[in-house]
Design a protein around this nucleic acid. Structure first.
Length: 685
DNA sequence: TGGTTAGTCGTTTTT
DNA sequence: CGACTAACCA
């Protein structure tokens, strides 16, 4: 992350002693406890480069697992900076989930899974559970609970029959779980948790498959080990079982995914699971100033469940950490936007030097407004905004249905979009008919003459719909370009004219049409970058696109384009893990966010605060609000209790007035100069 | 069937 | 406040 190499080639001497130790220990198990900013990614990338370049280990025998696509991509990039790209051929670096897809594609048939399986997104999963609940005469409003328990069961490798749920009716749950599983299998679908759980079962139950897979894994490296859940932990053990060359990297203080089943104790169990583990601790921080580190340390030390470690830095004290309490979210957002501009011009910084970190996605809104008002360019990471847009979801639903006609969730979404005169009543009748004959909705369309409940005219419309899907199924199978065929589909469906039909607001129409275009560009980029998004040996196909798409749900592709742009980054603390920024604004530092209202684990919330603080390299500004609007009503707020854990000598608590006075001080010559330079740059565009 | 409208409900964090 | 649904009329 820090002190990134300037020149090509591996210079082991540019590492500190602990880092070097970790890199050259390539035989047997090793564990790297890496504090925030201690060069964790650097160790992994150097280690891989070292193995390939110096030890001549074939890249195809190395497997590196990360938690996010972004981390995987960065890792690949940074190794490519160290050694010739040709030597990297065949290496696998990817997320647990992407690895799961790969394993299931090549070996899933042993589990009765067709390689064309589709991956269920969270909302699809929810609607399926809802539907099952209705079919079983249970309250569909409880789908969230069931979704959670299904996920937990899979993450913990507990099978349906063994599930015991406190306070819930375990028998009811088992019914639902069984029905859900049956439905997924029938429809050749897997959910996110299956991508981990099924490969585990595959290797457990089919030793010859396990042998085939693990033989190739000469060296296994796992990043962010503190975030592994039971299923992932077991998979790691399986993958390493043949060669026993495994490197894990992690930091118990940065474990922030317990709610997803992660257990940072896995980190400490590692030495028990792998005898003779070489332990390396990285405690020198290259990222932050000592002021920032001390603030971070003073918070995290209040956790009882942790390995004591003190990060230190040679970077000097640096600027003091500021804390400002604003009246409401509006003034908070404006204040932060203002502060960004003041710093930018005073220090001649880029907008990309700044990040705004918040606890929940919806907080982004007020900052977006403020930044737009001040003409500060920004990007939002995560937040799902793009793929949540209606027109995108509609097109995706077409692609998904074309790929897998059993995908009833997608079918229901688009059977009457664009409008073809198929109303709710007919759809319901179709569903009843399909359920009665035990057919998928799509297959039922071909048999509508067997029922009297669907009028002939409507049935005809349904058949036209079916024919489009079948027509494009064939087209996608025979094309080399997913983009071209999708484009044709969009035109055939008259999606753009339909957008004009549905809205009269020209701005909205323009926005939606632009979204459709952006979506095409995403496909285009995917198609042109086999390296980043595809398995090298597979040609672009609808199946591959949908698999990649399901895994890269984040606005990955949006951000790609912007990543070199000079813009402020807005993101949640969770999404910020692994990243660093010179200037960090940690906003909404209030009781209710830190810790969150319904948090179940205060220590995890403290770790979250720790992660947020340690993102900052040079300067940290913490803000909160006295009141904020919740559902249109004012809600009064208190500062985060974690604030009291920071000694007053480390933090400058100032009022808004003090801050403004300081900011409104007559700008120094330097600021003025920078400001005009900025204006000039703007004019050039 | 389809469009409008009133009424309800909710917001952690993500692969 | 705003996204989503149910209910009602054209």
């Amino acid at each position: 992350m820090t002190n990134s190499p300037k020149s090509k080639g591996i210079n082991i001497n540019s590492l500190n002693e602990s880092q070097r130790e970790a890199v050259i220990h390539t035989k047997g198990p090793s564990m790297v406890l890496a504090g925030a900013g201690s060069g964790k990614t650097r160790v992994i990338t150097f280690k891989i480069a070292y193995m390939i370049d110096k030890l001549n280990i074939p890249a195809s025998n190395i497997l590196a697992v990360t938690f996010t696509n972004k981390a995987a991509k960065e890792m690949k990039q940074r190794i490519a900076d160290l050694i010739p790209k040709s030597k990297l051929k065949g290496i696998y670096i990817g997320t647990f989930h992407a690895l799961g897809v790969k394993l299931l594609k090549s070996h899933g048939k042993h589990l009765g899974l067709d390689p064309n399986f589709s991956i269920l997104g969270e909302s699809d999963q929810k609607s399926i559970i809802k539907q099952i609940l209705i079919e079983h005469k249970y309250n569909p409003d409880k789908s969230d609970t069931f979704q959670f328990h299904i996920s937990t069961a899979k993450n913990n490798l507990v099978s349906g029959e063994d599930i015991i749920i406190e306070g819930e009716d375990s028998i009811v749950f088992r019914d639902i779980f069984t029905a859900y599983q049956k439905r997924l299998i029938n429809h050749n679908q897997v959910d996110f948790d299956d991508l981990i759980q099924l490969p585990f079962k595959l290797m457990r139950d089919f030793p010859e498959v396990k042998e085939k897979i693990t033989k190739k894994v000469e060296h296994l490296l796992v990043d962010e080990y503190q975030d592994t859940n039971i299923a992932q932990y077991e998979i790691v053990k399986q993958l390493a079982s043949h060669h026993n060359n495994i490197t894990i990297v992690g930091d118990d203080d940065q474990s922030i995914y317990a709610w997803r089943g992660a257990n940072y104790q896995n980190l400490f169990n590692f030495e028990k699971d792998f005898a003779g583990t070489k332990l390396v601790i990285l405690s020198q921080n290259y990222r932050s100033t000592n002021n920032i580190l001390q603030v971070a340390n003073s918070v995290i030390k209040n956790n009882s469940q942790r390995k004591e470690k003190q990060l230190w830095s040679e970077r000097g004290n640096g600027k003091e950490v500021n804390y400002t309490e604003y009246e409401d979210e509006l003034s908070e957002a404006l204040g932060v936007a203002n502060s960004i501009n003041v710093w930018k011009f005073r220090k001649n910084l880029n907008y990309s030097d700044f990040a705004i970190l918040f606890r929940t996605n919806f907080q982004a809104r007020s900052f977006e407004d403020a930044l737009r008002e001040k003409s500060i360019p920004y990007k939002i990471i995560g937040g799902m905004s793009f793929y949540e847009r209606k027109e995108i979801k509609d097109i995706i639903a077409y692609l998904k249905l074309i790929h897998n006609t059993k995908d009833s969730v997608s079918l229901l979404r688009i059977i009457n979009y664009p409008k073809r005169g198929i109303g709710d009543v007919s759809v319901k009748n179709l569903r009843d008919f399909a359920a009665d004959k035990d057919l998928s909705l799509f297959d039922a369309i071909s048999k509508t003459e067997e029922t009297t409940t669907i009028p002939e005219k409507t049935a005809y419309q349904m058949q036209l719909f079916r024919d489009i899907i079948l027509e494009y199924k064939e087209k996608f199978e025979n094309t080399r370009s997913v983009l071209k065929t999708t484009d044709e589909l969009i035109k055939d469906l008259n999606i753009v004219p339909e957008i004009y039909n549905l809205s009269k607001d020209p701005i909205e129409i323009q926005r939606r049409v632009k979204n459709v275009d952006s979506f095409k560009r995403i496909i285009e980029r995917w198609e042109n970058n086999p390296d980043t998004y595809m398995d090298e040996n597979e040609p672009p196909s609808l199946k591959n696109f949908l698999h990649a798409f399901a895994l890269v749900l984040e606005n990955d592709s949006d951000e790609d384009e912007d990543s070199y742009e000079n813009v402020v980054t807005l993101l949640t603390v969770h999404a910020s893990k692994g990243l660093e920024f010179p200037y960090v604004h940690l906003v909404g530092f209030e009781n209710g966010f830190f810790p969150h209202y319904n948090c179940f684990n205060v220590e995890e919330e403290r770790r979250l605060a720790y992660v947020a603080i340690t993102r900052a390299q040079d300067h940290l500004e913490i803000t909160s609000c006295q009141k904020r609007k919740k559902f249109g009503q004012w809600e009064y707020r208190q500062p985060s209790p974690f604030l009291e854990e920071i000694p007053s000598s480390l933090i400058n608590i100032q009022t808004v007035e003090q801050l403004e006075k300081q900011q409104n001080a007559k700008p120094d010559d330097e600021s003025v100069k920078n400001f005009f330079k900025h204006l000039k740059d703007q004019l050039k565009k």
